[in-house]
């Protein structure tokens, strides 16, 4: 028995070895390898990708800033400009009480 084992250590395919025959008869068959290959390739970690949400958010942001800019452009020149009615009132009050004219 030992001699047979020793011989098949040199040759794993020795058909005189009952274990070699048994392993050969029950060898797992390579089925569905393509599916497994695809599964492994799909699971490979890839460099982190930044999501691109498209041009719509960029367009909206541009439009919003344009409207804001135009609105501020209209409003800003009036800030700090004295109201003519208020100015006339102040002038009248100053004349009445002999205060320096505004």
């Amino acid at each position: 028995m030992k001699a047979r084992f020793d011989r098949s250590v040199e040759n794993p395919g020795d058909q005189a070895d009952p274990l070699a025959r048994l392993f050969a008869a029950t060898r797992p068959e390579p089925q569905r390898l393509h599916a497994l290959e695809a599964r492994i390739l799909a699971a490979l970690p890839r460099p982190e990708e930044r999501p691109f949400f498209g041009w719509a958010p960029l367009g909206l942001a541009f439009a919003f800033s344009l409207i804001l800019g135009i609105g501020l452009g209209f409003l800003m020149p009036t800030v700090g400009t004295p109201d003519p009615v208020e100015l006339a009132l102040r002038g009248a009050i100053a004349a009445e009480f002999e205060l320096p004219q505004p």
């Binding site: 797992p28 497994l36 390739l41």
Partner: peptide
């Protein structure tokens, strides 16, 4: 990062690794 090269390695070595693990 060449996935195609890795796919070739898979094709070459996957059957043996799978058979070993299954056994």
């Amino acid at each position: 990062g060449e996935e195609r090269a890795f796919a070739l390695l898979l094709r070459r070595h996957l059957p043996a690794v799978l058979a070993l693990a299954e056994r």
